[in-house]
Amino acid sequence: MNLKQELQQLNDKLDKFRRKLDAAEKRGDQGVILQFKQEIATLTKRIANVKGQQTRQLNKKGADVRSLPFNRALTKAEQADMGKLKASIKGLVVVHPMTALGREMGITKVTGFAPKSF
């Protein structure tokens, strides 16, 4: 299971436990309230751990892409025929500014990174 799926499942469980906690508080069931508060605390800690792991992976991928010796913004024509561009340039990595990697790298235009100039 990848981190994105795990994070989604953890958030679903957290939502479920919060709803059950609300119901237990309405009933006044102290034992169940304490149990769900502990569950929520452990899930919150696990979610923070998974998010940190995602951030580390994204930073590593960004560093790998940045280490490629050549980069430049892609023209609209190149963006329109991305398949042809990728086929002609071996090792090309295209980063869009609206993706997580693009936001992390701080790019503002669709940029191509490659081992040699293109």
Rank of each mutant, 00 (worst) to 15 (best):
K26C: 00
E104F: 03
K16F: 13
G102M: 01
K45H: 11
A80D: 14
R19G: 13
A24M: 08
K76V: 14
S117N: 12
G106E: 07
R103E: 15
V50Q: 02
E104H: 14
V95P: 03
I89R: 06
A100E: 15
Q5H: 10
A80P: 01
A114Y: 04
E104Q: 14
G91K: 06
V94T: 09
T108Q: 12
F17R: 04
P115A: 06
K26E: 15
G31T: 10
E39Y: 12
I40C: 05
N71L: 03
Q53C: 03
N59T: 08
M105S: 02
I33S: 11
Q38Y: 08
D81A: 11
Q5A: 12
G91P: 09
R72M: 07
F118C: 00
K13V: 01
A41K: 15
K4A: 11
L21A: 07
D15W: 02
G62T: 04
Q54M: 15
T108R: 11
N71Y: 08
M105H: 02
M82Q: 12
N2K: 04
L43W: 09
G112A: 07
L101I: 08
V94G: 05
K84H: 11
K86S: 06
F70N: 11
Q53L: 12
L14P: 02
T44F: 00
H96R: 14
L43K: 08
E78S: 07
K26W: 00
Q54E: 15
A41T: 13
F113W: 11
R66Y: 06
L43V: 11
L85M: 03
A63E: 15
L68E: 06
V110R: 01
G91L: 12
F36D: 07
A48G: 09
K51C: 00
N71S: 15
L92M: 08
K76S: 15
V95K: 03
D22L: 10
K26D: 15
R19Q: 14
E104P: 02
R46D: 06
F36P: 00
I40L: 07
A24T: 09
L92N: 03
Q5D: 14
H96D: 13
N59W: 00
K20W: 05
L7Y: 01
G52V: 08
G31C: 00
F36E: 09
L68A: 06
H96A: 09
Q5L: 12
L68C: 05
V50P: 01
K90I: 12
Q35H: 11
K20C: 00
T75I: 05
R72V: 08
I47D: 03
Q30E: 15
M1K: 01
L7A: 04
D22I: 10
V95H: 05
N2F: 00
K86T: 13
D29F: 09
L43M: 14
N49W: 02
L85H: 04
M105C: 01
N11Y: 06
L85T: 05
V94A: 07
E104T: 04
D64C: 02
A48C: 02
R19F: 08
Q9N: 12
M105P: 02
V95F: 06
L7K: 09
N71H: 13
K51F: 00
F17K: 03
